[in-house]
């Protein structure tokens, strides 16, 4: 299967098809007085970013992805289903050139047990994720896996980053669990960069 490039290469044919280059006739062949103006067209390399809809884990597990946002208390809203990942809609999309594309999911739940994101806890460099949106798809290879104290999450250089090349940031919970101290102590952060 071809790895589609989401930055700087032609992938989104629908976008080009929508180019209104035939809305008005092009410049007339002769005579500057009657030149019919053209309409500026998107270059073939133009990619229209999209929110992701599906994630495939290195072991082939497929998770649907739904958009989520920051709640008034500062916490990221998460799908209650541990088999579904939430995409932080305030962050990068597939096709954006810069920033963190953030996906988070519950590591476990009382009713469903351990979820697919528990695999993040043991993710090794080089393992590959495939992320897709309506018309785009890209592969990301794991760069780092780290446990950070949950209070330190906002200061993590990758989580929620605006700058730097587009990267996939996967977040779940991990580390010691203490029900009396708010549950898991840590967030697990897997950072994966474009591989193609």
């Amino acid at each position: 299967m071809t790895v589609l490039t989401v930055v700087g290469c032609a992938t989104d044919s629908s976008d080009r098809a929508a180019a209104p280059d035939s809305a008005v006739p092009g410049p007339a062949e002769a005579g500057w007085r009657t030149d019919e103006p053209g309409r500026g067209r998107p270059a073939a390399s133009q990619v229209t970013p999209e929110g992701p809809v599906a994630l495939v884990l290195p072991d082939g597990t497929r998770m649907p992805v739904v958009p989520v946002d920051t709640q008034p208390n500062g916490a990221l809203e998460l799908p209650s289903d541990i088999g579904t990942a939430g995409w932080w809609s305030g962050g990068a999309r597939l096709g954006d050139p810069y920033g963190a594309l953030v996906l988070a999911a519950h590591v476990d739940s009382v009713s469903q047990g351990v979820g697919p994101f528990a695999r993040l806890l043991t993710m090794r460099p080089g393992q590959r994720f495939r992320l897709s949106s309506r018309t785009l798809s890209a592969e990301f290879a794991v760069d780092t896996t780290r446990f950070v104290h949950r209070d330190s999450l906002p200061r993590d250089p990758d989580a929620f980053a605006r700058e730097g090349p587009l990267r996939l940031v996967l977040i779940t919970c991990g580390g010691p669990y203490d029900a009396n101290a708010g549950g898991y102590r840590d967030n697990v952060i897997v950072v994966a960069t474009r591989s193609s």
């Binding site: 946002d69 920051t70 709640q71 500062g74 916490a75 990221l76 998460l78 932080w88 809609s89 305030g90 962050g91 988070a104 999911a105 519950h106 590591v107 476990d108 739940s109 009382v110 047990g113 351990v114 994101f117 528990a118 806890l121 949950r150 209070d151 999450l153 906002p154 929620f160 977040i171 779940t172 919970c173 991990g174 580390g175 010691p176 669990y177 029900a179 549950g183 898991y184 967030n187």
Partner: peptide, 22 residues
Amino acid sequence: ESSSQPPSKVGSGVAGLVDPQE
């Protein structure tokens, strides 16, 4: 400009099932 702020926390586990010590 959207006013959506980055989250300050991600509470993504409730059951303690992956606690290495437990």
